[in-house]
């Protein structure tokens, strides 16, 4: 028997496969395809304190092996989430992680404080890196100082572990990762989407109403993989690898580079059963290579 469980220190997952925020709805949408109990965990759609309308359409455009989205974090807010969604998710035997958003640092703290009073949540993922909400993709994750500020503010009150989700749109990702660690973050998620755009040459207009969006999918995998590897060399807290994972092989690359767990995003649209298949592939890999505990491969890249 292979042991697929991984220990993030603050949270033990039954396997390293999580789902990425915004690509798995509130979880319930996927129950026809995946038994949520089989997942290591899932991260629900980003939540602001209040409901948000999101951006005008078109919000999606496909590019070579990638997807640019400018959803702009349409969401139902903490109150409706707690009343309508949480009760339906509580009984699943898997880690429910809530993706926390805010326009100001105080809003992040307000969201976690509100959710602290609710049961059934394993951890928070601080989304300080959404490129779609304001000011040409500006967000706290673009500088070490703003990252440190928001993480330490949330950590002051949060009763639950905090995973900080970083932006790849920076010059030196390790600086930001260290700032989040110093701010008290329990873990890191790498990474959110790459600021991107696409143009319709016939009309010479942007293909997204928001002009810019965030690129995800297989197109970005080598880029975030490199960042996970670099950050793994410089921080002590666990890393969740995200970006373009569609197969067990992709997940393994991230783990060998130093990720303790991974999130599957865009692949959920391509094949809503992706997570299930990735877990199966991880198990097969371990069996084939005589690996008893999948944790043994984390950060084992030979250079």
């Amino acid at each position: 028997m292979t042991d697929l469980s991984v220990d993030l220190g603050f949270l033990r997952l039954k396997n390293p496969v999580l789902t990425a925020s915004g690509t798995f709805g509130y979880g319930v949408e996927f129950t026809p395809f995946v038994d949520l109990n089989e997942l290591g965990g899932f991260v629900v759609k980003g939540l602001y304190f209040h409901p948000r309308p999101g951006n005008p359409p078109p919000r999606l455009v496909e590019t070579a092996s990638g997807l640019i989205n400018a959803i702009g974090l349409q969401g139902i807010g903490v109150k409706r989430f707690s009343e309508e969604i949480l009760p339906r998710l509580k009984d699943y035997d898997t880690a429910l992680i809530v993706n926390v958003c805010g326009d100001e640092d105080e809003e992040y703290a307000a969201v976690t404080e509100y959710l602290d009073k609710q049961d059934g949540i394993a951890a928070y993922e601080l989304n300080i890196s959404c490129p779609n909400t304001k000011r040409d993709g500006r967000c706290p994750a673009l500088s070490p100082d703003t990252t440190h500020a928001v993480v330490s503010l949330v950590k002051k009150t949060s009763k639950r572990p905090v995973i900080t989700k970083l932006s790849p749109n920076v010059t030196d990702i390790t600086e930001i990762a260290l700032a989040a660690q110093e701010g008290g973050s329990d873990g890191l998620a790498l990474a959110n989407t790459f600021l991107a755009m696409a143009i319709d040459v016939e009309t010479r207009t942007p293909k997204l109403a928001n002009v810019f969006g965030g690129l995800s999918g297989p197109a970005i995998k080598p880029l975030t993989l490199r960042m996970v590897y670099q950050v793994a060399q410089s921080v002590q807290i666990p890393i969740v690898g995200i970006g373009g994972i569609v197969s067990g092989n992709d997940a393994l690359e991230y783990m060998i580079a130093g990720a303790s767990a991974i999130e599957v995003g865009t692949a959920n649209f391509v094949d809503p059963e992706s997570t299930k298949n990735i877990i199966r592939d991880l198990e097969a890999y371990c069996r084939k290579n005589g690996i008893q505990r999948i944790e043994q491969i984390i950060g084992t890249l030979k250079v």
Partner: peptide, 22 residues
């Protein structure tokens, strides 16, 4: 993006929609 309500990619503003929700 998905076709089954999970990505919020396909929205359009309809007459009864609120400010918050398309």
């Amino acid at each position: 993006g998905c076709g089954f309500g999970a990505c919020w990619g396909c929205v359009r503003k309809l007459k009864n929609d609120t400010q918050e929700e398309w």
